[in-house]
Design a protein around this nucleic acid. Sequence first.
DNA 1: TTTCGATAGGTAGCTAGACGACATGTAGGC
DNA 2: GCCTACATGTCGTCTAGCTACCTATCGAAA
Lengths: 109, 109
Amino acid sequence: MKADALRGHLDALILAVVEDEPLHGYGISEALHSRSEGAIDLPTGTLYPALRRLERLGYLRSSWSTVGGRKRRTYQLTRSGRAELAARQHDWHQTSSVIGAILGTGPAG
Amino acid sequence: MKADALRGHLDALILAVVEDEPLHGYGISEALHSRSEGAIDLPTGTLYPALRRLERLGYLRSSWSTVGGRKRRTYQLTRSGRAELAARQHDWHQTSSVIGAILGTGPAG
DNA sequence: TTTCGATAGGTAGCTAGACGACATGTAGGC
DNA sequence: GCCTACATGTCGTCTAGCTACCTATCGAAA
């Protein structure tokens, strides 16, 4: 599945996976991949600009470290990022219920 | 709610409302407004280009008429539009279940 | 030793689609 | 005459995701 299908909700997904624990870009990509059972496979040209944008907006804070000789930039959710995530989750529930009502919610919601 | 939140799924919504009965642009706008309980309010700069695109792609067919002295362009779903709608509905169910699984489906989801 | 896959981070240029602002016109009520 | 609802449309702008490309480390395989 392309992130294009998630348009406008990708930020929420990223914020959601770093909510549980701070993660670096590659780790976020893997977390989304596994949590979606393989459905989400973000190209780096989508992920990294998104992370930088979210940091610029103040929702994430990053720090560099070196693990196993490789440099990592680890992102953690800020206070305002946590609030943003809650708002985005609310947006998502509204959006999905509206679209679901028109398209037919299908099996079990 | 902005159509931006529906990105990539707006076409499906339009095809869905004209599936039941042929409608003109303004009527489609009203149908989406009422079916979403007021949540969707499409600007004309979003709706009309979308309709022309869907017609160009062969999913809709239009015809002009005059009702009460006003000109209407009425759109109806084509055979291929019907197939496209089914495909888009399927996409939506997949997308919403993936996002729901990560964000939390909310109450009883 | 070189090559390859996994890990790790990044940019540049392109494109689709939604947006706000604007343009045009009819009909009916005040 | 003016306003609101009805009705259709364009134009230039902006967001955000995409493809393609680049750099670099590490361990295993050839």
